[in-house]
Structure formats: structure tokens, C-alpha cells
């Protein structure tokens, strides 16, 4: 299932709509890495609100996606992780190091705005 990627000002928003296969995830990664350069985006937000399972492959793919996007000069923000998913990830030792996080899309956008303005940082890191 294709993940829609929306442009919102200087940011890209990938809003996941349903459970993704491994291939879908890789496709999402490739699309984002490509588009972040094409649209000269400063930040990428991946919204995982609908996911109630995040396996190790998903976590690894998102980590690598964040690293790639960093190399392309933008920041990745993961938003909408469910409490149960967060708990399971931590228990399995799947910490998303190097990926900033926020509660939901709204928080994520305001976090990126703050960061662009050079304001004080809260949360995430």
C-alpha cells in the first residue's frame, strides 16, 4: 500500500494509513529520501499513529531512513507512536536512537517550527 507523502511548507509529511509490508516500508524510505532533495525540505515527519505493531524491521528501516535524510540535510521526526507500541519497543530494546519523536502531527510541526526559529528545544531527542 502506497504511503501518501504531503508537502507542508518546508516539510514533508508521510502519513501511514494502514499496516505496511516490508516492501512498502522500503518504498516509503526510498520515496522520502528522493523527495526530500527534490522539494528542498528541511524536515520529514513520519506519522505512525495507525500502527499498533512496530517490528524490528520497521524500526531499523525508520532508523536508516532518518540517517539517510540527515545526510540529505534534513531532520526526521517520528510522531504518533502508541503507548503500547512504545512500551513494547523499549522492552525489545528497539530504541530509535537518532530519531526525534513527538506526540502527534501537531506537536511534530510545532517542534520543527521551533527548531527552525532556533528556540528552546523540548522533547524529542
Amino acid at each position: 500500500m502506497l504511503v501518501p507523502i504531503l508537502r507542508q511548507g518546508p516539510y514533508l509529511i508521510a502519513s501511514i494509513q494502514s499496516a505496511l509490508t516490508d516492501a512498502d516500508l522500503l518504498r516509503l524510505r526510498d520515496d522520502l529520501v528522493e523527495q526530500v532533495g527534490r522539494y528542498r525540505s528541511r524536515g520529514v515527519i513520519v506519522d505512525v499513529t495507525v500502527l499498533d505493531v512496530m517490528d524490528s524491521f520497521a524500526v531499523r528501516t525508520i532508523s536508516s531512513l532518518a540517517q539517510m535524510i540527515k545526510l540529505r540535510g534534513a531532520e526526521t521526526l517520528l510522531v504518533g507512536i502508541q503507548p503500547e507500541v512504545a512500551f513494547t519497543m523499549v522492552q525489545l530494546g528497539l530504541a530509535l536512537t537518532g530519531v526525534a519523536t513527538a506526540l502527534d502531527l501537531e506537536e511534530g510541526l510545532s517542534y520543527l517550527d521551533e527548531r527552525d526559529k532556533g528556540g528552546e528545544r523540548v522533547g524529542g531527542r
Binding site: 517520528l78 507500541v85 517542534y111
Partner: peptide, 13 residues
């Protein structure tokens, strides 16, 4: 440590 990590995933310090 796990509690702290899990909270971070929800965007809280």
C-alpha cells in the same frame, strides 16, 4: 531507563 526511553518515543522528556 525503559520508562524514560518509552516516554521519549512519545515525545516527552
Amino acid at each position: 531507563v525503559q520508562t524514560v526511553e518509552a516516554s521519549r518515543l512519545l515525545g516527552a522528556t
